[in-house]
Simulated assay, not measured.
Amino acid sequence: MAKSSDRSAWGINTRLAHSGNDPHEYHGFVNPPVVHASTVLFPDSATIESRNQKYQYGTHATPTTDALADAVNELEGSAGTIIAPSGLAAVTVPLLAFLKAGDHALIVDSVYHPTRRFCDSMLGDLGVEITYYDPLVGAGIEDLLRPNTTVVFTESPGSNTMEIQDIPAIVDVAHKRDAVVMMDNTWATPLYFKPLDFGVDISIHAATKYPAGHSDVLLGLVSANEQHWERLEKAKTHLGICGSPDDVYLVLRGLRTMGVRLEQHSRSALNIAQQLEGREGVSAVLHPALPSFPGHELWKRDFKGASGLFSIVLDGGPSRAVQRKKAHAFLDALQIFGLGYSWGGFESLAVHVWLEDRTIAEGPTAGPVIRLQIGLEDKEDLLADIERGLEAAKLVAG
């Protein structure tokens, strides 16, 4: 890693630019080598028998994966980080690592839908009982904990509807009952929220999003504190989980500019959100940095910033069919926003949010919910595009 007597004194963009590898370890090249590897040779039979060698096989680690893991550990303040081939894999590996048949897990009801799908199917088939809880429960989660509750899985802000959880209160209660607290922190990244600093045990990121930043990589990151790192690492090894060397390299490269990209995403998104508040055709704007947002005070207390993802609720209609037509009219009128999943890339995206999987946190019902990923385009152009969508939705007969 780059040498410094006190790296903690550096600003975040300086740390992003220099974390993860020392160029002088690689003949002065600024970026680390991309190591494509399965087999690693040992110098003699005694070494292969003892396995007393840093690198043993490609799935375990390479200089490329170590560079990314070291950089993320520095950002997270974690004891170790595993690299998974997708954001969803970054969710499933720690759940498999810390849950077994007969255990009970509490999962926030506003969770990313593929996480819920995994919990309801595979974890259920493995004999794990799942309870979904209100994202606004805070310390009240104590009433939901059972003697066999092993994991509390949080996601803040909530997927699509942006509910802010009281993470310190949940951690305090869960740890008193020896439950492991996990958090999907993809929205904020460790730049705007550091879960382990708030007592969370396992921090999860879809590096597909802001760390990669260009909509061309699939990768997940899971970081653990000292107490839980060994168990997480063992699970990763037993499952044979790893990321491809080229994707790992691209995410490490993406980290170098993540700070300045996030600043642009954040600034544009908040400006657009502010201009949409009170606008005809918009029933609500779901952005945690807006004072009008119900979870704003919690967000202001715990987060250092907001990223480029938020949602709006369009004015509704007398039926779901009409609301669906309004959503389609809005989306189909857009010229700059792409219609597609994921976010965190350079381009703006929009999707009609589906909330019917929820059991506790119903979400907005006044009209269709549209999730907006604000990219790096000029915000004036993006706002004009949204206006086109709103005008098209307005023409849908109610």
Rank of each mutant, 00 (worst) to 15 (best):
S8R: 14
S8W: 05
G11V: 09
A17E: 08
S19P: 00
G20L: 06
G20T: 05
P23F: 06
Y26L: 01
G28C: 12
V30Q: 13
N31P: 00
V34T: 13
V35N: 02
S38W: 03
L41D: 05
A46L: 13
N52L: 14
Y55D: 04
A61P: 00
T62I: 04
D66C: 09
L68C: 06
L68G: 05
A69T: 14
N73H: 04
G80E: 10
I82P: 05
S86Y: 07
S86T: 14
A89Y: 08
A90Q: 07
V93F: 00
L96P: 00
F98W: 09
D103F: 04
S110Q: 09
R117N: 11
F118G: 11
S121C: 12
L123Y: 04
G124D: 12
D125K: 14
G127N: 10
Y132K: 11
D134F: 03
A139I: 03
D143P: 00
D143I: 02
S156E: 04
T161E: 07
E163G: 01
A174M: 07
M182S: 07
D184G: 02
L196R: 12
D197I: 00
F198K: 12
G199E: 04
G199A: 04
P211M: 10
D216S: 13
D216W: 01
V222D: 01
L232Y: 01
L232V: 02
E233M: 05
K236M: 11
T237P: 00
H238Q: 14
Y249M: 14
R253F: 04
Q274E: 10
G281Q: 05
L286C: 08
A289E: 11
H296Q: 07
E297C: 02
E297R: 15
K304A: 13
K304G: 14
A306S: 15
P318R: 15
A327E: 03
H328W: 01
H328T: 07
D332P: 00
A333S: 11
S342T: 15
E347M: 10
V351K: 09
H352N: 13
H352Q: 11
V353T: 12
L355E: 10
R358H: 13
R358Q: 12
L376F: 01
D381G: 00
D381H: 09
L382D: 03
R388Y: 02
L390M: 01
A393S: 15
V396T: 03
G398S: 13
